[in-house]
Design a protein around this nucleic acid. Structure first.
Lengths: 340, 340
DNA sequence: ACTGGCACTCGTTACAGTCGAGTGCCAGGA
DNA sequence: TCCTGGCACTCGACTGTAACGAGTGCCAGT
């Protein structure tokens, strides 16, 4: 049960070596590459204990040891310090993010940057509507019975939706509708809008009532219930690094999982404020991803969180480096958003 | 040089068998599975000729034959009829596409449908801005020196961009700007706008000149020069079907290519009106995709083409079926767009 | 012009043997 | 008590050999 300092050092050495070489590490190689100050035989005894405790395992007898998910967990929690970023990485981040002209651009640049720096699959959630406020609502007449509803959020997101009106509405009334909607809703958090929208319908003059009812339905549907969340993905080609050793030979389940927005949102979206979350292997709730690890964190202007971002890679991953990069990118993106 | 009917029949049989079994096909198996009315020895002679002409090849001596890219080309051009869709497929298409509420929704549903039906990677280009017309321009004041420019196109696309004004502009002037811009630009094809935008700047009253100049720059940049094209992708997990036999063992180059919008646009965007284009293996201009084939076509409401869609898969692909599906989906999407 | 027959090629599979990295255990020493 | 050197053992990786068989090319015969 008690793991003394040396055993922990052995575990750390195993993780580091395995991550960099991708091959099971044996006792002899270990004492050669690290100054442990003891003989291979001693290390072997320590290894036996570590294995008994479930931190490492042997792929087969007469092979070296490989960390288990539990071993990585211990490593991440207690044996590693977050690596400082290299100046080159800092520069890359800054260079990549200046010159972004709109939210789409910011998100795309971010996700590519993250994929490139970590050499893994990167995922960035667009600022969540639920955590945004309404900046402006616009109603654009398309025909007498059709409106385009455009909502602009303070986070820069713009959502639009076609509205079929139950009856023709004159242009002047559209202007009234817009004014009323903006008066009530501008500045409100999206998550607080449902009651406001309800109230809106009731306060509106009788002749506008039917149109406003339809409008409110669409508003609620689009902004609150429906997909509402968007995700950007990059770096899937990085899954093929490390041959087919990672992910036990088949990318299939991983690729399938990456196509499901719901899955990705669960992975990177449910993050507590300003924590970096690390999910290792089977800690993950999705079977398809039991061979993968996810490092994610929230981002947003200032201290508020408006969305999540992170990377997905093999459990055999450089956790300290990845964590550092994910955090740094999230911080920069937050600053960028704060400027708008 | 001269390939008589039987040699063509042999080629067709080879392609069909190889596509369905994924294994090199020999002369004996061929006469068993198809009514060719001749002996294996005869088939062998025909095969020797086909090989000499470059339509098939042997992976190694004493293996069966496999079609070459050239063989597939001949097959597609002269030996196959487009398969009619099964009723189930028709139903799937209809079911999938009803209920789409906006353009994003249509595109996402389409790309997933296509991936599912063909069991390959599907690519759908959003309606190209260059082929759209301006329906409406909206200017939303964010602050006194910032506007959100929103453009709604007749194809349903909505583009937005933040505009930093050189000097504060009062709200009334914003309304004027909007009116002027809409008067000049509404209804114009996006590709025709540059001269109109130029003219616009010159006609505007002096006090609005600086603001309109900035605005026009952003307009041109956003709508004409910049990325302007969007793409949706689905079904990457299908690349892993057929083990690692397709794509000669590495998905890497394919995944890399799929991350490049430019590449995808070249593949599916440059299609002539109402033609289905088939690119086989090395006919493709990208080295990364020399092991893949692409079937693509244009779509749009009525006879006009506003964008492209298609699928990408191994050269060993069911061309007749895939072509039929791609065409059918494109037609349905066109009808859907025509309704808006 | 087609066919049956035959020798040949060569990848696949199975099996045996060797090699060596790595282990577990134990007895001896600090 | 803890560490170490030594040693026997395991077992996957690799190598070489042999048998197998699918498939071919060619040729002589119809």
């Amino acid at each position: 049960m008690g793991l003394d300092d040396r055993k922990l050092a052995v575990l750390r050495a195993i993780v580091e070596d395995y991550v960099s070489t991708q091959e099971p590490v044996g006792s002899k190689a270990l004492v050669e590459r690290h100054q442990l100050g003891v003989s291979p035989a001693t290390v072997r005894n320590d290894m036996a204990v570590l294995e008994e405790e479930g931190y490492i395992r042997q792929p087969h007898t007469s092979a070296g040891r490989v960390p288990t998910d539990r071993g990585y967990r211990l490593f991440v929690d207690r044996l590693s310090r977050v690596k400082p970023l290299s100046p080159a990485e800092r520069r890359a981040i800054e260079r990549f993010l200046v010159g972004a002209v709109d939210l789409d651009d910011v998100v795309h640049r971010t996700v590519r940057l993250l994929a490139q720096l970590t050499r893994q699959v990167a995922v960035v959630q667009y600022p969540s509507l639920a955590r945004s406020s309404v900046r402006h609502l616009e109603l654009v007449p398309i025909s007498t019975t059709r409106l385009m509803l455009v909502m602009i959020a303070d986070t820069g997101r713009v959502e639009q939706r076609l509205v079929e009106l139950p009856a023709p509405v004159p242009a002047d009334d559209v202007i009234d509708l817009r004014r009323l909607a903006n008066e009530k809703l501008a500045g409100a958090r999206l998550s607080d809008t449902p009651p406001l929208v309800q109230a809106l319908v009731e306060e509106v003059p009788a002749e506008l009532r039917p149109a406003m009812t339809t409008l409110s339905t669409v508003l609620l549907e689009t902004l609150v219930e429906r997909h509402e969340e968007r995700i950007a993905l990059a770096g899937t080609a990085n899954l093929t690094r490390g041959g087919l050793l990672d992910f036990q030979g088949s990318l299939r389940p991983i690729l399938e999982a990456l196509e499901e927005e719901v899955v990705l949102l669960k992975l990177i979206g449910e993050t507590e404020p300003s924590t970096t979350r690390v999910l290792i292997g089977d800690e993950n709730e999705f079977d398809n991803l039991r061979a993968a690890s996810v490092v994610s964190t929230g981002y947003g202007p200032g201290a508020t969180i408006v969305g999540g971002l992170g990377v997905l890679g093999p459990t055999r991953m450089d956790y300290p480096g990845t964590i550092a990069t994910v955090r740094a990118v999230a911080r920069y993106v937050g600053e960028l958003l704060a400027q708008n």
